[in-house]
């Protein structure tokens, strides 16, 4: 799971309010190079929830992202590549996503989060 995906996911367990952003607990993470597509990156960075992105990057040991969404028109390529790396190149292989409201843990195995709810958790 990459942080782009993480930015779109929420917990929908019974009792959760927004269920967003999910906290990440990592056991295994990997890095894979991904082609840098500037237009795609800029469009994506304009849309994503920056706070969730920054917190998630932090928990994966990719720190020093700015506190607030940067002015993308003023970003140079080296900054953009840093965001690209955090968003697209860091993969969570094994770990948990944790619901911020209820603490429900969604296991990530082989890079695939299991977002399915148990029978008694469906609202």
């Amino acid at each position: 799971m990459r942080l782009l995906t993480h930015n779109l996911l929420a917990s929908n367990v019974k009792g959760a309010k927004t269920g967003f952003p999910l906290k990440i607990h990592v056991f295994v993470q990997e890095e894979h190079e991904t082609a840098f597509n500037k237009a795609f990156l800029l469009a994506t960075l304009r849309k994503i929830n920056w706070i969730a992105f920054r917190e998630a990057a932090d928990s994966l040991g990719v720190p020093n992202l700015p506190e607030l969404p940067p002015d993308l028109d003023k970003c140079d390529d080296s900054m953009l590549r840093k965001y690209h790396h955090a968003l697209m190149e860091v993969h969570v292989k094994e770990g948990y996503l944790i619901c911020p409201d209820t603490g429900r843990r969604f296991p990530i195995t082989k890079g695939i989060p299991n977002m399915l709810l148990n029978e008694d958790e469906v609202c």
Partner: peptide, 15 residues
């Protein structure tokens, strides 16, 4: 970019 075990009916895309 992402593979998920997810139910379309009770999907986990944030609201």
């Amino acid at each position: 970019v992402g593979l998920l075990r997810m139910d379309l009916h009770k999907h986990s895309w944030t609201a």
